Amino acid sequence: MIDLIQASKICKDEREKRGLSRKDLHKITKLPVDIIRRLEEDENYLKKEPYAYFQMKVLLNYFGIDEELSREISPEEPKKEREEIVEYQPKSSFLKFFKGVFGALILVLFTALSFSFKEKDEDNFASFLSLLNSTPEENAKPQKNPDRNIKNIKNIHLKAKNYVWITAYIDGKEKVIKLRKGQSIKLKFNKKIKFETIGNANNLVIIFDNRKVALNQKIIHNLFVDNEGVFYNGYNLAQEES
């Protein structure tokens, strides 16, 4: 599994390795040139823009990079702070004695106050700490596990309102499909389906998880389907239609 920043570097290296400019990649994937630049160079865009996940999947699918993409950004390793060099300064015996006595008095006073209030405020202090470590949303409602709502979709239905022809790659295997008016078929997949070309796409309805996705262009290239949705130009059409 790779995160968005790792995927960004992989896709940029792959584009340059193939001798493609960003404009060339735009013509193939239909992603705007500025979006491709942001996906390759702008970490802030990758961290904050929700559509960056789906747009990156378009690039990964085009380059044939079969890696599972994580929505989370891996935290950077903390940088070691430079240790400060403190110059040794000799201290007088009087100053050492004064600081020692003062420190001892403070310690005795703090210990006495701690014992006197410990039993009384122990529960309140624990409650206060728990409030500091939680957000208002956490206090208002229980946490939900987002993985519980993820469905493992492994098939779609295609229904033709008129003649439709399709070139698809189902888990990497090429399949040519021709549908007559009123005809429907079911496609099963393990990882993904790449619709390289859909002719008369405006006459095709894709049913994903009981949701209908209608296409409004006559010819469509590079439409992808996986267990999360139907993706075109970086957007999940199944999510938008729901």
Rank of each mutant, 00 (worst) to 15 (best):
P90K: 11
P90T: 09
G19H: 07
K99I: 00
I153S: 00
E84R: 14
I28W: 11
N222K: 02
Q6I: 10
Y53G: 02
I220Y: 03
S116Q: 13
I85S: 11
D3H: 08
V101C: 10
T167C: 07
K194M: 07
C11S: 12
E76H: 10
K181T: 11
E68S: 15
L105D: 12
E49L: 00
L25S: 04
S70L: 12
E43L: 02
L25G: 01
K191F: 08
R180C: 06
N190Y: 12
S21I: 01
S127Q: 13
E77W: 00
G199A: 10
L129V: 11
D24Q: 04
K178P: 00
N203T: 06
A140I: 05
P78W: 06
K159Q: 07
Y51H: 05
S114F: 13
V176Q: 12
K178R: 12
N61V: 02
K96S: 01
N61D: 12
K79M: 14
L95G: 02
A160S: 05
E119M: 02
G64D: 09
K151N: 11
F54Q: 08
I73D: 08
I35E: 01
G19K: 04
N155Y: 08
E41L: 13
I219K: 09
S134K: 15
M56P: 02
E41R: 11
L129G: 10
S92I: 03
S130Q: 15
E122L: 06
N152M: 07
Y235W: 11
I177S: 03
S184T: 09
I185L: 12
L158I: 07
E68K: 15
C11F: 07
K159C: 02
R82W: 14
F110S: 14
N203R: 08
L4Q: 04
K9A: 08
I156D: 05
